[in-house]
Design a protein around this nucleic acid. Structure first.
Length: 775
DNA sequence: GATGCAGATATTTTT
DNA sequence: TATCTGCATC
């Protein structure tokens, strides 16, 4: 059966094309087609997993263009990731059969935000060539502010302040909007002042951080209605992808652009999303934005896409039942169009994570022997530490794999250093860039010298480079340093001159050579030096794709991803559930379905029920990535931070319908207890410690959560006086104990609630005292 | 200015 | 357990 029948007899489709619709509408089902053709007025498309969301979005844009409702430059289309933006561009090109050069406003929130901000930079206190700071620069800046305020960085870490500020910016709050209650607790009431200072400092540096790209945009629009009006007139049609991931700032930004001033005419805004796939609450996304759309835009049309073209009915049924346990959702019922029941979902209980990796490896090899491609298989983990075990196993097996996500190219030290050189040339007031490279490679400029530079700069309220220029004319520095600085200044000026005459990538190469930066790594004998040199070459190479330095710097600030390797190789993908959103595979492995890991304890502790529901959506995303096979596993024992812990099966397992699940127990555990079918829940062990663990997994976890909360750390005036670690270890060295999974053993050492035990069968392990009992 | 040690710290991640 | 960070020391 073909996935999408070309003509659906069901129901008449109203269309201005009458009987002969353009080819790009072929193959759309009735709802998809309606979503494409309902161009006027607000529209919410609730698109379940695998229902052809991207197709609708791109066809819709193609349709608007083809029917000449608007030109490309009059359409605002925003996505969250560069990858999504790129994909959309490619697919629109296919629909319209031409290049999409005419769509300047298709991009991520941040790139479009930056674009608008650059055009009107002066109005928010910046220059058009402002630098976009990343997290690393942000932290360094905050550290400077903290030390200026004499705040102990140990007690009030810069990272913490950064994430707090991030939260404010995500919520669209300028320093003046932040309440004392929100900011007051940090550094004894200095939170708000720090935020104010930070923003002021950014303006001096002619810089903006990621949050500002939207936040300052909002301010720009609010303070300059005539500018907002320009954009309002320009954007005849607006489209937003993954609307469930939008945060408050993005929402406000959009609403300013979308809501008409007179309040009469309706804007043509179309948002597409799936409340069930909202998994970024922890970084400020507000599911509420999508749940509230109809209120924000009265008269909005809502279209649900519920026909799933991806997964078998068993997979879909499992996913639907699971997600039905969530309370806050708009409610969709996915129906399969694949027409096959397919394999049941496999749930396998294994002894530990090592066996889990072995098991998965074996299955992959087996599927491979059946003729499946590794490219069609993926392992989706909850936390990245789970990846290592799989990698190790696959290396032993000689199984090709690729890890998606992980440390990014542009975050590497050598790349950031190289960029700092370019930044200081492009933007001489970028003090953060200068600080980064002033003594890299070593130029004999120590703390004392740099302190003089800083003091001079602060006293005169000028950038560091300007301070250096002044200083070399005085006697304040030692002759050696003075000549070093002179030489440095000469170089920067020289490079700045050349910037106008030679291509930027050649300039970059010369800068790295002449500054001694390349030589520094060439002389470095450490193992990773050659790799770093290779990365620098790669950097220069990638610069050639851009017209000028400014364009390149913008790209790397905003586009932190890089084409992830050669897809031509056949390889299993390993990635987190988060990075799997939007992808699909024939076979999906979902390891680590254990309480505490998935759902993650921290999500429960920090966000309670909302956290649990988000974890459940993550599970939903995981299952719905699978086209044909979904194989879940759980380990009975897992080592977390070096401590062995027995694991309880995830409550999500209990939420899968029995009919579509097949449970296997590898039973390879030595001296262990086997998991079996007929207990309180399908996945729980019958417990030897009857009193504590006899309830289903979720009840247990809730109890754990409660008991975890009650004692709490003891604080006086905000100072942590004592961290409760529960009842102190009630065990003595030499005592004989019984562990749920490892059996009998003797305590060899105690440390708080951690015990070192020499088990008779399992050997020496470290475990938490709550998992043993006197034997 | 390099080196080494003690101590903290340990989800998810894009822009 | 492993990694990173800051600080102290030579």
């Amino acid at each position: 059966m073909s996935a999408v029948p070309p003509h659906r007899p069901s129901g008449p489709i109203t269309s201005q094309f009458g009987a002969r619709a353009p080819a790009y509408l072929d193959g759309l089902n009735a709802e998809q087609r309606e979503a494409v053709e309902s161009t006027e007025g607000p529209l919410l498309v609730l698109a379940g997993a695998g229902t052809g969301k991207t197709r609708v979005l791109t066809t819709r844009i193609g349709h608007i263009l083809a029917t000449r409702r608007a030109r490309g430059s009059q359409i605002l289309a925003v996505t969250f990731t560069n990858k999504a933006a790129r994909e959309m561009k490619e697919r629109i090109a296919k629909v319209v059969g031409a290049t999409v050069e005419g769509m300047p406003w298709l991009g991520t929130f941040h790139s479009i935000g930056a674009r608008i901000l650059r055009r009107h930079a002066e109005l928010v206190g910046l220059r058009p060539d402002f630098t976009i700071l990343d997290t690393d620069d942000q932290i360094r800046l905050i550290k400077q502010l903290l030390s200026a305020e004499n705040i102990d960085e140990k007690r009030w870490p810069a990272r913490q302040f950064a994430s707090m500020m991030d939260g404010w910016k995500n919520r669209g709050q300028l320093p003046k909007d932040v309440s004392e209650a929100d900011a007051g607790w940090f550094a004894n009431g200095k939170g708000k002042k720090l935020y104010t200072d930070y923003q002021a400092r950014l303006k001096t540096l002619n810089a903006a951080d990621f949050g500002d790209l939207l936040l300052e945009g909002i301010r720009l629009f609010k303070e300059n209605p005539e500018i907002l009006a320009q954009y309002h007139d320009r954007f005849r049609y607006m489209l937003v992808d993954e609307y469930q991931d939008s945060n408050t700032a993005q929402y406000l930004w959009l609403r300013l652009l979308a809501q008409s001033r007179d309040g009469k005419s309706q804007s043509n805004i179309c948002v597409v999303g799936d409340d069930d796939q909202s998994i970024y609450g922890w970084r400020g996304a507000e599911v509420d934005n999508i749940l509230r759309f109809e209120k924000d835009f009265p008269g909005a049309k809502v279209i649900k896409l519920e026909r799933n073209y991806r997964s078998t009915s068993n997979i879909l049924s499992a996913a639907s039942h699971l997600i039905a346990h969530n309370e806050s959702r708009l409610g969709k019922t996915l129906q399969t169009d694949v027409g096959e029941q397919g394999d049941k979902l496999a749930v396998t209980s294994v002894w530990d994570s090592e066996e889990e990796a072995r098991q998965v490896g074996e299955e992959i090899e087996q599927f491979q022997r059946q003729g499946d491609y590794l490219n069609d298989m993926a392992i989706l983990v909850r936390a990245s530490f789970q990846m290592r075990e799989f990698e190790e196993r696959f290396i032993t097996l000689g199984l090709n794999y690729r890890v998606i996500g992980g440390p990014r190219f542009y975050e590497r030290r050598e790349i950031r250093d190289a960029l700092a050189y370019l930044r200081i040339i492009a933007n001489p007031v970028d003090d953060l860039a200068l600080e980064r490279i002033i003594n890299v490679p070593k130029r004999g400029l120590g703390d004392a010298t740099l302190q003089i530079v800083h003091d001079t700069a602060r006293a005169a309220n000028i950038p560091l480079v300007a301070a250096i220029r002044d200083l070399v004319e005085t006697e304040e520095l030692k002759p050696k340093q003075r000549s070093t600085f002179r030489e440095f200044l000469r170089q920067i000026d020289d490079w700045a001159d050349r910037m106008r005459t030679i291509p930027h990538f050649e300039l970059a190469e010369q800068v790295l050579d002449e500054s001694g930066y390349t030589a520094m790594w060439q002389n470095d004998k450490s193992a990773d030096a050659p790799g770093r040199l290779e990365n620098l070459k790669e950097l220069i190479r990638s610069m050639e794709e851009f017209e000028n330095l400014g364009g390149f710097l913008e790209h790397i600030a905003l586009v932190m991803d890089r084409d992830s390797g050669d897809a031509s190789d056949d390889a299993v993908s390993i990635m987190t559930l988060h990075s799997a959103k939007g992808l699909e595979f024939d076979t999906v492995f979902l390891p680590g379905w254990e309480e505490g890991l998935f759902p993650h304890q921290r999500a429960l502790d920090e966000s309670g029920l909302a956290g649990l529901e988000e974890e459940r959506r993550l599970a939903y995303v995981g299952i719905t990535r699978a086209r044909k096979r979904c194989r879940i596993s759980l380990a009975q024992n897992r080592r977390i931070h070096g401590l062995w812990q027995s694991a309880i099966p995830s409550r999500f397992l209990d939420e899968l319908p029995t009919e579509v699940v097949e449970v296997t127990d590898t039973g390879s555990s030595y001296g262990g207890y086997t998991y079996g079918g007929r207990q309180t829940t399908r996945f729980d062990a019958r417990d030897p410690f009857d009193s504590v663990y006899e309830t289903p997994g979720w009840q247990r976890a809730q109890r754990q959560q409660q008991s975890r909360k009650s004692p709490g750390p003891l604080t006086i005036d905000g100072d942590l006086v004592a961290r409760s670690s529960g009842p102190s270890a009630a065990y003595d060295v030499g005592e004989r104990v019984l562990h749920l999974k490892f059996g009998y053993g003797t305590v060899t050492a105690t440390e708080g609630n951690k015990l070192s035990i020499d088990f008779e069968k399992a050997g020496p392990k470290k475990v938490l005292d709550s998992f043993v009992k006197r034997g």
